[in-house]
Design a protein around this nucleic acid. Structure first.
Lengths: 114, 114
DNA sequence: TGCATATATAAGCATTTAATTATATACTGA
DNA sequence: TCAGTATATAATTAAATGCTTATATATGCA
């Protein structure tokens, strides 16, 4: 695996994106589980447009990708992103967010289509 | 050494601070060498107030500390900061910025008082 | 003491950001 | 085809950010 040199301005851009609690948590969750928009709406108790806009920013730099599954659009981490190793290394130091998904399941809000 | 649990909101706060090219580069440099304000002014070709304001933000969260040495105020990394290990691990992935200091020395602008 | 240098801080302003509200698009199932 | 659900996007607005200009404070030196 070739290690690409990190550039300061690109690193700063990524850190800026992750310097938001909602987006940071999203990425941490997505690193382990795909999620659809409405799940995030539930998890963060935020409005749908707000969640969509956060996801768009992550998608715009290519950190996450989207895929339609029936009625839903699922987001997942783009593990081929040039800076994914940089991001991963950071995520590994953050506390596991699996509990948030467990709560979703318990409340019957977890989407498990397809 | 006790490993402290990283909290998502504190991590996001730190990443937000580092999500600025000037501050990210400052911290990367400071991790290896103390620097005074006027050196940063030279390195970044920025105004003195602008540099002071960036340093203040870093100081406000305790990531860097200041120390007067004669006429100058030197900044250094606070390696006892609760989240320093988190930051360090990030810095280690960034390209070395030693060249910037070398250029300072060559231009005779490096401060080496005390 | 008085001037130059180094730094901090305050005020003002332009830009960016993140949320809300409103609306459009796409899919599902009756 | 129509209603309901999921999502994206545009427009608006409030708040946060980062810069500039202006000024104050502290040190060093003649």
């Amino acid at each position: 695996m070739l290690k690409t040199a990190i550039e300061m301005d690109k690193a700063a851009l990524i850190l800026k994106l992750l310097g938001d609690k909602t987006r940071l948590t999203m990425v941490k969750i997505l690193d382990k589980h795909d999620c659809c928009v409405c799940e995030f709406v539930e998890i963060f108790k935020a409005s749908q447009p707000s969640i969509s806009q956060h996801l768009r920013k992550l998608r715009d730099v290519g950190l996450v990708k989207e895929e339609r599954r029936g009625q839903w659009i699922f987001y997942s981490i783009n593990k081929t992103h040039e800076y994914y190793p940089f991001v991963l290394q950071l995520l590994e130091q953050l506390p596991d967010q699996g509990e948030k998904l467990k709560q979703l399941e318990e409340s019957g809000s977890r989407i498990t289509c397809c």
